[in-house]
């Protein structure tokens, strides 16, 4: 191989590496769907409609969690959904989702356990 050919090869190899290093966009770690937008609309126009859309977006993001580089449900989504159920009085569902959150993310276990204990304590008071 002639020197100039070699140089051309090296140059193009270096260029390829640099260009891919600068601009490659892999899939994000998590799929949030339109979490931020739906949360924003929920804050801006608090009401039944925006609350429903916020909840539906959480469910959609959980359902399509596989469309991401981690394949996992994003941090906090199960907890957010559980909290919506808790506010509407569905304690069973709330506990179910809080448990899911801490199963995927042990970092949340302390907080989720505290929430679950609170629910049990309240139920104990009623009896």
């Amino acid at each position: 191989m002639k020197l100039s050919n070699k140089l051309t090869l090296i140059t193009s190899a270096v260029m390829m590496i640099l260009i891919s290093g600068c601009s490659s966009q892999p899939k994000p770690l998590y799929n949030y769907e339109d979490y931020s937008d739906s949360y924003y609309h929920y804050k801006k126009n608090a009401g039944e409609q925006s609350a429903l859309e916020y909840k539906q977006n959480l469910e959609k993001a959980i359902e399509n969690a596989g469309d991401s580089s981690s394949g996992r449900v994003a941090p906090g989504l199960y907890a957010d959904l559980g909290y919506i159920y808790l506010k509407s009085g569905n304690n069973q569902k709330a506990i179910e989702y809080f448990t899911k959150e801490k199963t995927i993310y042990p970092e949340s276990a302390h907080f989720m356990d505290r929430m679950i204990q609170k629910i049990h304590a309240q139920e104990g008071d009623k009896k």
Partner: peptide, 22 residues
């Protein structure tokens, strides 16, 4: 309004982010 934008970028970077609203 700003509160609704904070979780995602920090979570996408690999941190466990506690659910902001809750």
């Amino acid at each position: 309004y700003y509160m609704t934008t904070v979780e995602m970028p920090f979570a996408q970077l690999g941190y466990y982010t506690f659910p902001v609203e809750m």
